[in-house]
Design a protein around this nucleic acid. Structure first.
Lengths: 189, 189
DNA sequence: ATTGTATGTTAGTGATTACTTACATTTAAT
DNA sequence: ATTAAATGTAAGTAATCACTAACATACAAT
């Protein structure tokens, strides 16, 4: 039987919440308190705050962002493909808006290791999906520019003031938005 | 004659550089050193680091961002108007990318007072110009959505990885980009 | 020469914070 | 019951940092 007194999960959960809320400057003290754990337990398990941060964020990124984009890229119809990509990313990003904002903020200040550079992750994953999709088509597409355009749409929902986060919209509202965004992207190809 | 030994300008310049580079966490010590000034001089002039930060950033924002957008909004032709707006904002933002990044970063972490919330400033100034322009036209336009779209374009140039900042592009390259972006925005109206 | 003002020097305060040391206690398995 | 591993307690270290106190100096105007 596995040790029942292992506090690792509690720590990871509390650290995730704290880091998402306050960024890297969240203190080990408050994380420990929130996890209902002695502060030194953090250090015995993770050595440094930096290491705890990286561990936590990588884990959250994996569970929340794991692409699914490449599956969408299999879609033959470009319009349907774009619509699904936009919908999927807007959903994921807006559901995780606090973490996304924090990672972008830290990234902009150059505080993050390469594997946590969310802007790059977002951009590259989009570009890869676009490349994969358009590779098989006749029309040559500037996927760089297109990925930038899509990334811009996503960033606008995370960063600009926004009363109604995407994932809270009704289905018809989402569809109306997707129509317009898809049209605007298509008009660039 | 005005005192020639006044160090205010040195301090403002050094503080601007330091804050842009490191954000609000730049230390008063390094600012003083860079300004070649005793640390206490900062405090005698500005009382607190917070106050120095606000003073400096407001000043830089005024000199660098002062709209010009409303003048562009006088333009009758919508396509020309959009093209000029996009060009103007991409120029200004990409020339000041380090400061823009820093202010967005601090803004995302909730560290700024209202008057320095750059995402809101960007969004609202665009929206105001759009409202002003489309008010006189027959076609009703969702300026909120349109401002978001434009803001997204700008953010994509500031935040996503980018080898070639806009203000370094050749004129023809800029024009090609503006054509495509304008078309994509028009296709949403 | 005198004076007032802006600045400098030096030292320090008090708070925060990542991380440590040393020792005590709980808990699971044998 | 014994043991070993995981956790806790309490105290502390060393560094950083915004900000201050007290006193000294450079300088500009009269």
């Amino acid at each position: 039987m596995i040790a029942v007194r292992d506090k690792t999960e509690q720590i990871l959960a509390a650290a995730a919440a704290a880091f998402i809320k306050k960024g890297f400057q969240a203190t080990t003290q408050e994380i420990a308190k929130e996890a209902d754990v002695a502060e030194i337990t953090l250090f015995r398990k993770f050595s440094t705050k930096q290491n705890l941060f990286i561990t936590v964020m990588k884990k959250v990124l994996e569970t929340q962002f794991d692409a699914k984009l490449m599956k969408l890229a299999e879609e033959e119809n470009t319009e349907v493909f774009l619509k699904e990509v936009i919908n999927n990313r807007l959903d994921v990003l807006s559901e995780n808006a606090p973490m996304v904002r924090m990672l972008i903020s830290e990234s902009l200040m150059g505080n993050l290791t390469e594997e946590l550079q969310l802007p790059e992750i977002i951009f590259n994953s989009i570009k890869k999906a676009l490349d994969h999709h358009f590779q098989r088509k006749e029309i040559p597409v500037d996927t760089e520019l297109c990925a930038r355009q899509l990334g811009g749409i996503f960033l606008s929902y995370i960063i600009l003031p926004n009363d109604r986060p995407y994932h809270n919209l009704k289905t018809e509202e989402k569809n109306a938005l997707l129509e317009r965004y898809t049209k605007s992207v298509l008009s660039m190809l």
